[in-house]
Design a protein around this nucleic acid. Structure first.
Lengths: 268, 268
DNA sequence: TGTAAACTGCGAACGGTGTTAACTTTGCAT
DNA sequence: ATGCAAAGTTAACACCGTTCGCAGTTTACA
């Protein structure tokens, strides 16, 4: 197997402290490829993200891209990783903007930023959270960049939840009132992420997360169009309910409901 | 534009009462194409559903399929329509199996059957409810078979909700306590489907539907794998909560939790 | 400095895809 | 029997991912 872009991103490989000029050029090219691919994704849809199309826009030929990625699928997976990183970054920014201690504000800010990003980058969101990717089997034993980033993403919201619980715990059901089959899974998950939380709290967090991401996905994928033009009020309603269940106080979004409709949404 | 399979399904076209032998043969071929395509979808994944692959398995050549469908996309859309029909049928069966008047039972049966179908036909579910289809723009003004079926599907759950409300109304918030922006949308939707229900009830129904389909989608698409091996207990928990909000009484599923895991899941 | 190795691109080619066009065969109706 | 439309074929086009061999450049090292 040839050197992959994932390996290329590992700048400190082979004990070298210095980043050679070659590596810098290479990283720049990888970045340009990603940006070009993403631009095509946004402008022309996922099935237009073709090796030849990317290369064409870069003034190259398709086989040259194989110097940077082992396959088309790996290129997509790399982009998915980048997208996770971007999303996590924006969520962190949104969280940190809220004054420390205001857990309700942090939760609302993160949730709203998640929906905002999803709607502003719907094509990208489809790549991350749509039906499982074309060749996403990750048949390799290799760590899988995208999966790693996905885990970091899951960790973000969970750490927010953790902080929330530590600062303002809310009443939860005792462990022995949880369905045994579910209890075991929750215990396993708790051990896996290494936190000390009542299982009832973890269950509550998962429920809230499912409502959040489930609702956003339906909205972004257009599966609420049959009834709603603008799902934002429903989203806010859900935030209020979810917040209440977590012992938080709901406050409406700072700006009035944004115009929202009529974004360019280029491409066919 | 050539005669499409959708038109072919319209057996009573052009004043002819009799269904000619030719039309019967044609319909049979259309059915065989659909079945072959679906088999490939299930066994080898969505990107293997290729005109040439379908034709090969039928002992034909790819261009022959153009006698029955205007394009690859239209063939997929036809299958989507069939899938909606199948899903709606199974949901109706599940609902009618429950003794009349037991609205809680009907709601639970329909919800569980929805999840069961989604999990047993995950590839198909991805086609119906994943990120918007490849070429699904429906740029034509034509009614769009798939969209029509989708509407029937939405109508099914809504009619179940309607019956539920009529038999056992539950307290809802008055219209003037609903966010104005949402209120207008709900009113529009109510007029569109032609029912007479308080807007608060419609809002509640939509919320429940979002939780239902959102949760099932996350599960089927594997976006809960980060924490759960088997999402069924969480699904049941959600059913209990949603049912409570609708004034229904929750009862656990009739059979013990099915083995569930380890279905063949053929193909790569 | 000279040279070997590594890197990066190109062009051609292979098998596969959707799609179109022209051509043959088939079967039914007048 | 003749004619015609449906249903199938083959050939071809443009595009796709991917592989291979070759050239040009850049780097590393003796």
């Amino acid at each position: 197997m040839r050197r992959s872009a994932f390996a290329a991103a590992d700048t400190k490989g082979r004990g070298g402290v210095a980043e050679s000029r070659r590596d810098r050029l290479r990283a720049a090219t990888v970045r340009e490829i990603s940006e070009t691919a993403r631009r095509i994704l946004v402008e022309q849809g996922p099935e237009a993200v073709t090796l030849r199309a990317i290369a064409r826009e870069m003034g190259m030929t398709a086989p040259a891209l194989y110097r940077y990625f082992d396959s088309h699928g790996e290129l997509l997976r790399h982009i998915v990783g980048d997208l996770y990183t971007e999303l996590v970054g924006e969520l962190w920014d949104a969280i940190e903007t809220v004054p420390r201690g205001d857990m309700s504000g942090k939760f609302l800010a993160a949730s709203r930023q998640f929906r905002r990003w999803a709607r502003a980058n719907s094509r990208e969101y489809g790549l991350l959270f749509g039906a499982p990717m074309p060749g996403n089997n990750s048949e390799d034993d290799r760590p899988d960049f995208a999966a790693e980033c996905a885990r970091r993403f899951g960790g973000l919201f969970m750490s927010l939840f953790l902080e929330l619980w530590q600062k303002e715990p809310f009443p939860v059901v005792p462990d022995d009132e949880i369905d045994p089959g579910l209890r075991d899974q929750l215990r396993r998950y708790r051990d896996q992420i290494g936190v000390t939380l009542p299982l009832g709290a973890i269950r509550q967090f998962l429920q809230c997360w499912i409502r959040l991401q489930g609702g956003v996905s339906l909205d972004v994928f257009g599966h609420l169009d049959f009834a709603l033009d603008d799902a934002e009020p429903m989203f806010e309603l859900m935030l209020a309910e979810v917040g209440a269940v977590l012992g938080l106080t709901y406050t409406p979004p700072p700006d009035g409901p944004p115009p929202d409709e009529g974004r360019p949404e280029a491409g066919r």
